[in-house]
Write a protein that binds this DNA or RNA. Structure first.
Lengths: 243, 243
DNA sequence: CGCACGGTTGACCTGTATCAAGCCGGGTGG
DNA sequence: CCACCCGGCTTGATACAGGTCAACCGTGCG
């Protein structure tokens, strides 16, 4: 069924035999279109845990797509304020905001060893007339990002700490499930500090809230290893604003 | 120099003689390119204060650009949570997120009588090969929006109430200045409730913080009419995180 | 003209931040 | 391989910013 050949580890470096193709490219491409897609990715780079995806030349001239690994994006101001904007895993596009504003810089940091595909927009425009819907797909990627940010603003602007933490766990769970992993077993790649910043809380509050969830048997947690025990209850914590 | 002919009020309905062309379209277009741009806008619609920009057919098939007026975008969940995501005025593009997610709906409400230009993406793709940089300009618009949202997440996640209100006023001021108005005289189109939601505060807190600013002679405020008296101090409140 | 709603202000309360102490685990160097 | 140490994490005690509740005012809309 699923032939497992012994293949040198660099062979699968083309889009057409990448498992993620349905996530980062339009659905339902013909074989001809697939062959054109292969020329989109100018390079694939490896980034070690703790390092930043430093932008090559002009960042908003290219799309960065995570092939493997885990990242956080952080905005920092010159008065020393930091804010984690999001966490990203395989198939996600990052750096869509480009470098427009100089008021604050946006950093993309690997939380584990990762690989990233770089798709220059120039190539997109070259290839677009032979691949149907490529432009609209790029717009779709931007829309996804804006939607993601909207949902972050929602909890930052209107939720208490329990609701925020529950929402965070559910988001993680959903993105795991989306990628074919168990939605109930999460391996946290980020620190409590990262979570706290993302949720607009202090790390102590995150700790306490997680402890409360453990006590009420919603989750199991040992360091960075987390299991969701009561998904339903967690969900109603996040979405049933009582009163 | 600048001929002022008496023209029936609907004539200026083409992009090539719209004052906003430099804001919503790429810079430095040739006259030929300008003529192609004119065909981009499929229609211009009027929206009365208090009404929503209801999306036509499939929203993410078109770009909506504010010609005149003022809008707020609001996200609401089915458990009755509301969050103002932003305020928008002439030249801004709205609705870039499309309708991807059904978890929460995003509403765009006019805060005063407004007009909006609709640019279907299908037209963009038709015209793109005769207008240099049109695709990259669209991407630029998305980037602007993502950047804007990043800055909102920054204050929602990491600022206290004074910093938030000061930041809000400075943002308003900057967008006025950008459009050639005085950066010091602001006419608030939105209610205190809207401001509060946007800033992730309660309206009482917004009121009190504004009152504090009045007392310390940073601003003058009478209902919705606001004057910035000490821009420098306001700025250092927003950006100098002491300690 | 009147009323409802937006806005302000005060008194009080609570959720989250702050400060502080201690624990644990993993990485480093001897 | 072990010991140490540092950074991530937890937990407790306390403080305070901002939320909540309530009363009142003004204004602009119907």
């Amino acid at each position: 069924m699923d032939m497992k050949l012994k293949i040198p580890y660099e062979v699968s470096i083309s889009c057409s035999n990448c498992k993620l193709i349905n996530k980062c490219m339009p659905l339902g491409l013909s074989t001809f279109e697939l062959s054109r897609i292969d020329s989109l990715v100018s390079q694939r780079i490896k980034i070690k845990r703790g390092n930043d995806l430093q932008r090559f030349s002009n960042s908003h001239q290219a799309l960065y797509i995570i092939r493997t690994g885990y990242f956080k994006t952080v905005i920092s101001t010159n008065d020393g304020r930091d804010q984690v904007l999001g966490f990203h895993m395989s198939g996600d596009s990052i750096g869509l905001a480009g470098e427009i504003s100089n008021l604050y810089s946006c950093k993309v940091t690997a939380l584990e060893d990762s690989t990233v595909c770089i798709v220059p927009f120039a190539k997109v425009e070259e290839v677009a007339n032979s691949v149907n819907g490529l432009h609209s797909h790029i717009r779709h990627l931007y829309s996804l990002e804006i939607n993601r940010e909207n949902s972050v603003m929602l909890f930052l602007g209107s939720m208490n700490s329990e609701e925020r933490v529950a929402t965070f766990l559910l988001k993680l769970s959903a993105s795991h499930e989306e990628r074919g992993f168990s939605p109930l077993v999460l391996n946290l790649k980020m620190s409590r500090y990262d979570i706290a910043s993302y949720l607009g809380l202090k790390h102590e509050t995150v700790s306490r809230t997680l402890a409360k969830f453990i006590r009420s048997k919603l989750i199991y947690l040992k360091l960075r290893e987390l299991k969701i025990i009561n998904l339903v209850a967690l969900n109603s914590l996040a979405t049933d604003k009582q009163r």
